[in-house]
Amino acid sequence: MTPSARLSAAIEVLDQYLSGTAAEKALTNWARRSRFAGSKDRAAVRDIVFDCLRKRGAYARIGLTGRGLVLCHAVEVCETHDEVKALFDGEGHAPSVITVEEDTNLFQMRHQASDEMMYNMPAWLCGELKASLGDDAAVVAHALTARAAVFLRVNLSRGSVNAAIKSLASDEIKTQQHELSPNALQVVENPRKVAGSAAYNSGKVELQDVASQALCFGLPAASRMLDYCAGGGGKVLAYGDANSAALFAHDANPQRLRDLEPRAKRAGVKIRVLSKKACQKAEPFDLVLCDVPCSGSGAWRRSPEGKWALTEDAFHKLLDVQQDILREAAPLVAEGGVLAFATCSVFRRENEEQIQRFCAENDGWECTFQHRFSPLDGGDGFYIAYLTRSPQG
């Protein structure tokens, strides 16, 4: 496919997304209709689509359409306006020629500004971000418009960090260590080759964001650890590689755990999956981790459509769900044990204020540690707090 044809494909996908289809599904639908598109073409179209979603606020200045978003994307990545016009020449599979009205709007958009445009998120979320981050709000918002880096966690039970680096290099994957977590590697060349690499398939490395790795690395040692909102199991796998605890995993939606067994087998980690009732029978646990459902605001580089789909009503419901999970998990913690509360959010109302609320409403608990991981650190935005249960709790 030519560069122009890729832009046309991205316009088609974005129009389908704007009509109500999830971005991933829209991309899959396009790929199935476009058997001629090679792997590099599919990757390029995907990159354009997700860049447009990350910067939708700014790119929608000339109209919230697939064409409008892609046209603004082209203006940003091209060095000259003539290059943009060459891509939109209407020849073959290229998008149609830029109209006089579009040309005028493209010029004017450089002189427009609003919070939604500058922060690339709905106006009400701009308010949440400012209230949560203060002077860092604008720079974090800008960071969330960039493509997320690919990080790997070295599974030390399968070999050393240096051995993993060499193994990945043999598959033409260049990596470098990241300071945020000792076993973290950032992929700097050929990230799309990771899934087919010997290091990945032999369990030497796992895909995991560096902030998520740091969060897991810092969790207190325990003899029995339960990941209560385990999802794909990345955090319990990371904890198991660094600790000799008996490991347990639960998720309210068992389907989210479907990949845990093969991942655990590949990593050489034994994890027992528990139902809600089984968790109650198996308690107490020294450490219960609750990585609760949240806005996902710290990971909007990876899932940018989330910020446009989130409503204020849904946000308030998430806050209640988070408290419900904490109250549900609290009785599973042993006296003197830790209930670890985590989100991939940068908002105070999902983080510090939730901890304050829980401690105010539940006797016998003390917040003994809390930390924010900012997107400015290199990885996703995360929050972690330790709630310690008193012996009398």
Rank of each mutant, 00 (worst) to 15 (best):
R67H: 09
L71C: 08
F88H: 05
Q108P: 01
T65E: 05
H81M: 15
P95K: 02
D89H: 12
F107H: 12
D103H: 09
M118Y: 00
M118R: 08
D103G: 14
V75A: 09
D89A: 12
S114W: 01
T104M: 08
N105K: 01
G92A: 07
D82C: 06
P122A: 10
E79I: 11
W124Q: 02
T65C: 04
T65A: 03
D89M: 10
P95Q: 04
P122E: 10
A86Y: 06
E116K: 09
E101F: 11
E116A: 11
D82Y: 13
R110V: 05
E83P: 05
C78H: 10
M121L: 15
A94W: 01
C78T: 12
M118F: 01
L125Q: 15
A86T: 15
V75G: 01
Y119E: 00
H73A: 13
A74H: 06
H111S: 10
L125E: 13
G68R: 09
E101M: 14
I62A: 08
V75R: 13
E79N: 15
A94K: 07
E91G: 03
E101T: 15
M109N: 05
M109D: 06
R110F: 09
E102S: 01
P95E: 02
E83I: 03
Q108Y: 05
C72W: 03
M117R: 06
G90Y: 11
S96I: 05
I98Q: 08
E79S: 13
E79V: 13
L125D: 06
Y119V: 00
S114P: 04
G63V: 14
E79C: 11
V75L: 13
E116P: 05
G66Y: 10
Y119C: 00
P122M: 12
L64G: 11
M117D: 02
L87P: 07
D103E: 12
F107T: 11
T80F: 07
M118E: 13
H111N: 09
H81T: 05
E102K: 02
P95V: 08
G63Q: 13
G63M: 13
S96H: 07
R67F: 07
V70L: 02
S114Q: 02
E79Q: 13
L125T: 12
G92P: 07
L87C: 01
H93M: 09
G68W: 11
H73K: 13
V75S: 10
A123H: 08
L87T: 03
A94Y: 06
L64Q: 14
M121K: 12
M109H: 02
V75F: 09
E91A: 10
L106W: 00
L106R: 00
V77C: 11
G92L: 02
V84R: 03
L64T: 13
F88V: 00
V70A: 06
E83G: 10
C78N: 14
A74Y: 07
W124Y: 06
W124M: 01
M117L: 05
V77Y: 06
H73M: 10
K85T: 15
M109F: 09
R67P: 02
T80H: 09
W124L: 00
P95W: 03
D115K: 03
A94M: 07
C72S: 13
M109T: 11
F88K: 06
S96C: 04
E91S: 12
L71P: 01
T99S: 14
V84F: 04
A123Y: 08
R61D: 15
H93W: 02
L125Y: 06
V70Q: 01
M121H: 04
L87G: 04
K85Q: 14
